[in-house]
Design a protein around this nucleic acid. Sequence first.
DNA 1: ATTGACTTTCGCCATTTGGCAAATTATAAT
DNA 2: ATTATAATTTGCCAAATGGCGAAAGTCAAT
Lengths: 132, 132
Amino acid sequence: MNNREISLGEIIRQQRVTIPLTLQELAQKTSVSPSHLGRMERGERFPSARILRKIAGPLGFEEDELFTLAGYLSPHPSTVAESRPSYSSGRLDPYVSKVLANEPIEVQHAVIGILSILKSLSKSIAKETPQG
Amino acid sequence: MNNREISLGEIIRQQRVTIPLTLQELAQKTSVSPSHLGRMERGERFPSARILRKIAGPLGFEEDELFTLAGYLSPHPSTVAESRPSYSSGRLDPYVSKVLANEPIEVQHAVIGILSILKSLSKSIAKETPQG
DNA sequence: ATTGACTTTCGCCATTTGGCAAATTATAAT
DNA sequence: ATTATAATTTGCCAAATGGCGAAAGTCAAT
């Protein structure tokens, strides 16, 4: 239920590859050097608030969300529960949430529709050619 | 209307002396060295998030409030307007706010009552002895 | 004026952050 | 397999943070 054993670096890397972005791409979006980003992700450097703020947006985090994950802010008591999908496995990825939120409702529905078509397609293909 | 010309250091010092606390006292409350606190206040050092977080409580700031003042967080769009008295001249001092908030309502009312009595007293005294 | 206690500032240092460029590793494409 | 290209990691460095102890101010009491 709790993701206490996952580090900030891992979270950041997961987000980045999920989007997906390379270190260099994220670097130029954020004006943070790729080497630094890399070291952050594998826990060799601990990002300062300035850096954290730079990367929050492009990674799809709310600033305070990332600050909380970094242990800079204590968990936001009220706001978190009510509206934001804060990072944890099983919940909506914040980047996806952000992007979809910018789309019209019909588009959001269409995305879901396409997803369900793909899922059923892959299922029937798997049935036709059961290898393994 | 905007306090853009006042620096974080000045804000911190104002808070500290208003409470009032010496650098050493604040230092031992926060586990931050007095020399560092002093340099922060006069703008020679820029506090990290870790330090900022340590000093927020004892100075009567909400963590995110101080982060915002430091430029680590962009101004909180929704929360600020609705409930918090964020730092600016003419508004309720956050330390006062914090202390009063810890008191029962009757006490808070009593404080206001006493204040109004003192004000009317000083007014009538001023009338009796009008000196240039 | 001078002593004494307290408060603030300064000098110095270890540690950390974060960037640049080179080296290494992974990924294709032939 | 080999070469080309992109992605990540490493080595090294400058700059900044933050602590400790000494020096310099402040201020009251004698």
